[in-house]
C-alpha cells in the first residue's frame, strides 16, 4: 500500500503554503510597522509610562482613545512645541505634536486586512488542494494528509478569527451621502477616558 506520489506532493506543498502564508503575514506586519516610522521616526515609546519622548526630549502623553481608528493619540505640550527649533520638520499644528499608536492587534488596519486576506487565500489553497488530492486517491494511505490538514485548519481558524475580530478601521460610507466620518473620530480634547489615567 504505497502512498500515491500525488498525495505526497500535495501534502508537502500544502506545508510549504502554510509556511509561506505565515511568513508573508509576519513580513506584512513588519512592513506595516515600518510605515509607522514615516510618522514616528525619532520618537520612542516608553511602555512603562505609556508615553513617548521626541528627539528633543519632550514628553508626549496619551490624550485620547480614538474608537474609530482603534488608536491612542499622544500629544506634547503646545507651549514646548511652539518654541521648539525643529518644529517645522515636525508638525504644523499649534496644539503640540501628536503621535498615534495602534492598540488593536495585527491586522488592525485595512492594509493589514489585505495582507491577512492574502495569507488566508494561501491557507484556503492548501486546504482545497488537499481535499482534491484526497478525493482523487481515496485510499487508506492518503490519511497521511490528515496531519497537514489539521495544521491547515488550525492556521485557518487562527487567521480568520483575527480577521473577523479586527475591523477595517475605515470610515464606513452612509447610504445617503457617500463617505462620511462618523462622530467618534472627532477630537475630544481633554475629556477623554484616558485623561488622568
Amino acid at each position: 500500500m504505497a502512498l500515491h506520489p500525488e498525495a505526497l506532493i500535495v501534502g508537502g506543498y500544502a506545508v510549504i503554503l502554510l509556511v509561506v502564508a505565515a511568513a508573508l503575514d509576519w513580513l506584512a506586519q513588519h512592513s506595516q510597522q515600518r510605515s509607522e516610522r514615516f510618522r514616528t521616526a525619532g520618537f520612542s515609546y516608553l511602555p512603562q509610562h505609556d508615553a513617548w519622548t521626541c528627539s528633543e526630549d519632550a514628553m508626549l502623553w496619551p490624550m485620547e482613545y480614538d474608537e474609530l481608528h482603534h488608536l491612542v493619540r499622544y500629544r506634547a505640550k503646545a507651549s514646548v512645541c511652539n518654541s521648539c527649533l525643529v518644529k517645522p520638520s515636525c508638525t504644523s499644528s499649534a496644539n503640540g505634536r501628536e503621535v498615534t499608536r495602534a492598540v488593536a492587534p495585527w491586522p488592525h488596519s485595512e492594509a493589514g486586512r489585505f495582507h491577512r486576506g492574502i495569507s488566508m487565500v494561501l491557507v484556503g489553497c492548501a486546504a482545497v488542494l488537499q481535499l482534491v488530492a484526497a478525493a482523487r486517491h481515496l485510499e487508506p494511505s492518503t490519511l497521511v494528509l490528515g496531519l497537514p490538514m489539521l495544521f491547515t485548519i488550525w492556521l485557518g481558524i487562527r487567521y480568520s478569527a483575527h480577521f473577523r475580530a479586527a475591523p477595517a478601521n475605515f470610515p464606513e460610507p452612509t447610504p445617503a451621502t457617500g463617505l462620511r466620518v462618523t462622530q467618534t473620530s472627532r477630537t475630544r480634547w481633554g475629556s477623554d477616558a484616558w485623561e488622568g489615567k
Binding site: 512592513s31 515600518r34 510605515s35 485595512e110 492594509a111 475605515f170 470610515p171 463617505l179 466620518v181
Partner: peptide, 25 residues
C-alpha cells in the same frame, strides 16, 4: 520594497482627523 511597501501603505493610513472623508479608499 519593504520600504516602498510601507511607503505605499501610508496612503491607507488615514488616521488623522480629516474634516471631510478621504475619497480614495
Amino acid at each position: 520594497t519593504v520600504e516602498a511597501w510601507s511607503f505605499l501603505q501610508l496612503g491607507a493610513r488615514q488616521e488623522s482627523k480629516s474634516a471631510t472623508p478621504f475619497p480614495h479608499r
